[in-house]
């Protein structure tokens, strides 16, 4: 059981990293961090982006469940 959860956590972690990197980067790096710099919040999210959001959320949920499950199993 623990092994399955561990494998699940690893797989979902890797998928999460890839999925997040697939997203279009927002935020414009350092210049807009900590004040200063202008905001350009134009252009809504595309369909691709929306679906990607959904998939990321789905895998995020599985990832969370695996981690919480591992924590609970370790306690018992």
């Amino acid at each position: 059981m623990i092994l399955a959860m561990q494998i699940g956590a690893i797989v979902t972690s890797l998928i999460l990293v890839v999925l997040v990197l697939l997203h279009r980067g927002r935020g414009g790096g350092l210049s807009s961090l900590f004040g200063g710099g202008m905001q350009s919040s134009l252009s809504g999210s595309s369909v691709v982006e929306k679906n990607l959001d959904r998939i990321t959320l789905f895998f995020g949920a599985i990832w969370l469940i695996c981690i919480i499950g591992l924590g609970l199993l370790a306690k018992v």
Binding site: A9, T12, L16, V17, H23, G25, R26, G27, W63
Partner: peptide, 19 residues
Amino acid sequence: IVMTAGTSLIMWLGELITE
């Protein structure tokens, strides 16, 4: 691995707020 995934997730959360 889990910590790395967590960091990329934080990055995504931050971008969601910006967006």
